Simulated scan of single mutants.
Amino acid sequence: MSSILDQIKIRNQYLVSVLSIGSVASLCLFTRDYLDYKIVGYILLVVVSVLSMFLAILPLLLSAILSALILNFFFIQPYYTFHISDAEDSLLLVLFFIIALVNAVLTNKIRRAEKILQVKEVRVNTMKLYNALLDSLSHELRTPISTIMGAIDTIQSKSVSISEENKENLYSEIEKASLRLNHQVENLLNMSRLESGVVQ
């Protein structure tokens, strides 16, 4: 199911890529008599740069190739052909394509690096929180265990005589500590469930 959703998302990116370049090129085409083709090249380059912040690498490559072809076909004379008579225009088109391609690839790599860094930061923060909770729980576990062991040692001690009232108090302390210990064990179990992904 997730792979199907990913494919749909990629298809949408291809659509966005084609529509963005096509829309900007169409607007520039209406003003072709007033705009120099070099300015159109800069505009298309800006569009590719903006798209590189949102799209995956393959739709980006499509936008770079498409913008170079459109620039050649519609804006560099002779119009409506891929033939270029001027060597300077040929060099400009090649440079435009290389810049658009490099810009798209580099921006995509930067985005991927940022995502990896964010994932690492989340993991580090999660581990810090996990360790803090574990330290807190281990302290909370030691306290009731010490209480229970101390109370049992006192009750079982033959060298110390304890009144029935004190024994009842110690039994009460053991009960309270046992309930507290049970609560902390449940917390630990919940933590293990969170870690395994059973509980979100």
Results as ranks from 00 to 15, higher is better:
Ser138Asp: 05
Arg11Gln: 08
Ile39Trp: 05
Leu134Cys: 11
Asn12Arg: 09
Arg123Tyr: 05
Glu121Leu: 14
Thr81Tyr: 12
Val185Ile: 15
Val122Leu: 09
His83Glu: 14
Gly197Tyr: 12
Phe97Asp: 05
Ile4Arg: 07
Val18Met: 13
Lys120Gln: 11
Ser172Phe: 00
Ser146Glu: 12
Ile174Tyr: 01
Tyr79Asn: 11
Leu15Ile: 14
Gln118Asn: 12
Asn103Lys: 05
Leu134Ile: 11
Leu117Lys: 12
Ile65Cys: 10
Arg123Glu: 10
Tyr37Val: 11
Cys28Ala: 15
Leu133Met: 14
Arg32Glu: 14
Glu168Asp: 09
Gln200Cys: 09
Arg142Val: 08
Met127Val: 14
Ala177His: 02
Leu189Trp: 07
Leu61Gly: 12
Val160Ala: 07
Tyr80Gln: 03
Val47Pro: 03
Ile155Ser: 03
Met127Tyr: 14
Leu95Tyr: 06
Tyr37Asp: 11
Ser3Asp: 11
Val40Cys: 06
Leu194Asp: 08
Ser17Val: 07
Phe82Cys: 09
Ala113Gln: 12
Lys176Trp: 03
Ala177Asn: 01
Ile39Thr: 08
Ser172Pro: 00
Val119Tyr: 06
Tyr14Ile: 11
Phe75Asn: 07
Tyr42Trp: 13
Ala151Lys: 00
Tyr42Arg: 06
Ile57Met: 07
Glu195Pro: 04
Asp153Cys: 03
Ala100Tyr: 00
Ile98Cys: 07
Thr154Gly: 02
Leu44Lys: 09
Val160Leu: 12
Lys176His: 03
Glu164Ser: 03
Leu179Cys: 04
Ala177Glu: 07
Leu95Gly: 01
Leu66Trp: 01
Ser163Ala: 01
Leu129Arg: 08
Asp6Phe: 06
Gly22Asp: 15
Leu55Gly: 00
Ser138Pro: 01
Arg193Asn: 13
Tyr130Ser: 14
Ile70Phe: 15
Lys115Trp: 01
Ala151Gln: 00
Val94Pro: 00
Ser3Met: 10
Ser196Asp: 12
Leu69Val: 15
Leu5Met: 07
Tyr79Thr: 13
Leu62Phe: 02
Ile10Ala: 03
Asp86Glu: 12
Leu66Lys: 12
Val102Ile: 04
Val105Ile: 15
Arg180Gln: 06
Asn169Thr: 06
Arg180His: 06
Val46Ala: 15
